[in-house]
Write a protein that binds this DNA or RNA. Structure first.
Lengths: 345, 345
DNA sequence: CTGAAAGCGCTTACAG
DNA sequence: CTGAAAGCGCTTACAG
């Protein structure tokens, strides 16, 4: 490599470029600004400056721009856990759209904890970005209003529990499809003992999915004994634990609805280990349709969500908000869910 | 929520705090600085200022700090593709360690393309961060030296093809274990027709894994016909395509080594669809040991890497570099690989 | 079409 | 122990 000394070079500033090109800093700034200059610049000057920029290897300092200017060219994302495959298509889509706009993306995990969700807001307050896309499990309209008032950030969120008039929202109508799926289990497959592995009751998404399950059971006149509702934490491991509990009951269920696919996959794995056949002895339904749902055997019957689509809607709306009006009324994207029948139920 | 008007509030500055507390801005800065002040501050002043900070709801502007001060409190990560599960434990570990240090993390995908790797460097040059952790497939020592010279950023990288004297490196000795695995296939399992699904030859990691495969085959006196080496692109889909090609050969292989687990999973899926039994008709070995390797049936035989461990080593070294000396000599972490025999071979 | 100057919100020598 | 002042590298009215 020759040198690899890595002595840090003095940073080339806009002032250096101006001097070398024999123009003022204002002129250089106008030529290099990402927002087109309001005043004309002679083509000759422009070329001269651009040449010098190349020669000196000048790169604008984004922090100085942030301080003086309006745009930070950065957006933030808050998801629950980068380890859960459900979020990847969404993250990836948002990243791609952001890069097309010349933006970088900062990512934080909330781990479904309100404390960490607030830490994210705190971080955005210290280092404001132009927009954020979040999947809030605990943050409410007031929290988001606070953040907007403090930072002026544009916000897009997943979840129809967010009703703030200036926050764009994408969500899946999971209540309806959940209800259909449980009904299918009861009426098409003849199950009468159906259990559910949920997560913390307070999550709006659990309220909806669990509510749908109860409604379907009640309407069919089927009991839901309390021991049929086991709480997990979205992880594979929690699915493994939950199914052990359920199968150890004196009167175990013949079907289980899981709050998401990773729980369902964990449940299937342990059920098989314990000698149960899926779906003959115990049927399993997941939620999300992550790619892994098609990799496991039996293939997972699940309710598909379309996270890439949600990411796309929210990212596009976000950049319209960033470039257009911060105060545009909220847009709501209802992305459909689909019940996908495979082999596990 | 009451208001939800979201009119943006005038930002509270350090100057506002100073005025309200009847002290100078310098004093406020000394009290709020994350690096302990070199001069003493009276406890009374400190309390007065901290009270005002709370009252006014002041939050320091990180961009102003970046401009004037030395630390940005941000690190960057470059991975190939956030969609590949292999990277998640590493990303997650780095994020966690970063947050413990009060740092945020910016993430970019290279998609294994040199062009996007250079775009990442460009982005870091415009918006310098204190450190980066990267998995470079194309960037070389010269590229990294350039980046260091321009920005002074601390660097940690995955891959022992990086030899820069000031870049910490973590890598897995995959050549040795790859060689062992192929040997096992030949000598313990009696395979003579062993194929490999690789990715672009130019990736150092392919050079090593493919080299190990060839060496084992040659030493056993087994031929490697050119049609036994099929190129994929790390994705499940590329594994699906590759296995079709291989099984359509007049003299198809009885065993396949894949460059990673996602390729292997795609290959297994299609082999089964085509009516082949795994491992009886066609044995499959993967690489990485992503969690999904244990979810698929048959369970995937693979070579485990420990990405969380790599992330931990690199992140810790990075923060030592950030807080201590940028010019500390490079540290090399050899993280072991392990051949995990399950059911697919 | 171009330039001089103020100012974004901090940190940090320098002075007391 | 505290303050006044310079300056980080830009953008943007203001003036010509």
């Amino acid at each position: 490599m020759g040198k690899d000394s890595a002595v840090q070079r003095e940073r080339v500033t806009m002032q250096d470029v101006a001097r070398a090109a024999n123009v003022s800093q204002s002129t250089v700034s106008r030529i290099l600004s990402p927002v087109p200059s309001r005043v004309p610049i002679s083509e000759e000057t422009r070329q001269k400056v651009l040449t010098v920029v190349k020669e000196l290897g000048y790169h604008p300092n984004q922090y100085a721009r942030n301080l003086r200017g309006k745009k930070t060219r950065m957006i933030g994302m808050m998801i629950a856990d980068i380890t859960n495959p459900f979020y990847h298509p969404m993250v990836r889509t948002v990243q791609d759209i952001a890069f097309q706009h010349g933006y970088d993306v900062m990512i934080a995990n909330s781990d479904h904890m309100r404390e960490k969700e607030l830490l994210f807001c705190e971080s955005i307050t210290r280092r404001p970005v132009d927009g954020i896309i979040i999947i809030p499990y605990h943050l409410n309209d007031d929290d988001l209003d606070n953040l907007m008032v403090n930072t002026g950030v544009a916000i897009g969120a997943v979840g129809n529990h967010i009703q703030h008039p200036y926050v764009d929202v994408a969500y899946a109508d999971d209540a309806k499809v959940s209800y259909e799926a449980v009904n299918w289990l009861i009426h098409q497959r003849g199950h009468r003992r159906v259990a559910m592995i949920i997560a913390d009751h307070r999550f709006p998404v659990i309220v909806r999915r669990y509510g749908a399950y109860r409604r379907a059971m009640e309407e069919a006149g089927l009991p839901v004994p309390p021991e049929y509702v086991v709480e997990g934490d979205w992880s594979v491991e929690s699915g493994q634990r939950a199914i052990r509990t359920l199968l150890a009951l004196p009167d175990p269920p013949t079907a289980v609805v899981a709050a998401n696919d990773t729980i369902a996959i964990g449940a299937m794995e342990v059920a098989e280990e314990l000698g149960y056949r899926v779906p003959e002895d115990i049927a399993v339904i997941g939620f999300d349709d992550i790619p892994e749902a098609q990799w496991v055997r039996p293939r997972l019957t699940t309710i598909a969500q379309f996270p890439a689509e949600m990411g796309r809607c929210l990212a596009q709306a976000l950049f319209e908000r960033i470039n257009g009006g911060q105060d545009a009324p909220r847009r709501v994207f209802e992305v459909p869910c689909r019940f996908v029948i495979r082999e596990s139920a």
